[in-house]
């Protein structure tokens, strides 16, 4: 049975690293894995979505509407934007940080502040955390991706050490300690 995880956020928030780590850990567990990334134009502050799929045999690298077991959202509005992709009974893990998109900045639109409540009201399982605060405590606002990945990792039966090993392998040496700290904070939250 193929499981689907969608990683969404704003271009520049580090979804590529999160999907790389997740892919490496799942491969190590013996799964067939496919990860679909976003490059180029869409990375420049736009909405980005990365798909991670794993199971015995995975064909499609992408996730269609109503298929995601989990949505990992680095930003609140993006969780709402991609909620359509969530499977019935699926779960959204979301960073409560708000990043205004350009139409909100220019005043052409309003940032819908209570959008998570609306999703909860519709029966969606939402796990909302302030990942930015934890990332800053760990040493960098950029570690939001690692904090959220850790929160997500806890829902799986994969030992903590294996995630840490993946971080040590994938991250540049000078950022390893900070990312390990961020992972620990997200995991122990």
């Amino acid at each position: 049975m193929t499981k689907s995880v969608m990683i969404v956020g704003v271009g520049g928030q580090g979804s590529l690293l999160a999907s790389k780590l997740l892919g490496a850990v799942l491969l190590n567990e013996g799964y067939d894995v496919k990860v679909s990334e976003v490059h180029g134009m869409s990375q420049r502050g736009g909405s980005v979505e990365t798909y991670v799929r794993f199971g015995d045999k995975v064909y499609s690298p992408i996730i269609s509407k109503g298929e995601a077991d989990y949505i990992l959202s680095f930003e609140k509005l993006e969780a709402a934007r991609f909620s359509e992709y969530l499977k019935k009974g699926g779960e959204i893990i979301v960073n409560t940080q708000e990043i205004d998109p350009m139409p909100v900045i220019t005043g052409a639109a309003i940032y819908p502040g209570n959008i998570l409540d609306e999703l909860i009201g519709k029966g969606v399982k939402v796990d909302a955390i302030d990942a930015l605060e934890l990332a800053e405590k760990a040493g960098s606002a950029k570690a939001v991706n690692i904090v959220l990945l850790a929160r997500f990792a806890k829902k799986f039966d994969i030992p903590y050490e294996k995630w840490i090993a993946a971080i040590e392998k994938a991250v540049a040496p000078k950022f390893v300690e900070m990312n390990k700290k961020a992972f620990k904070m997200g995991y122990e939250l």
């Binding site: 502050g45 509407k65 998109p101 139409p103």
Partner: peptide, 15 residues
Amino acid sequence: KETVKTDTAVPVRPP
């Protein structure tokens, strides 16, 4: 597949 969608409009986020 069954999906969930918010009623509130989600502002676009262009690059």
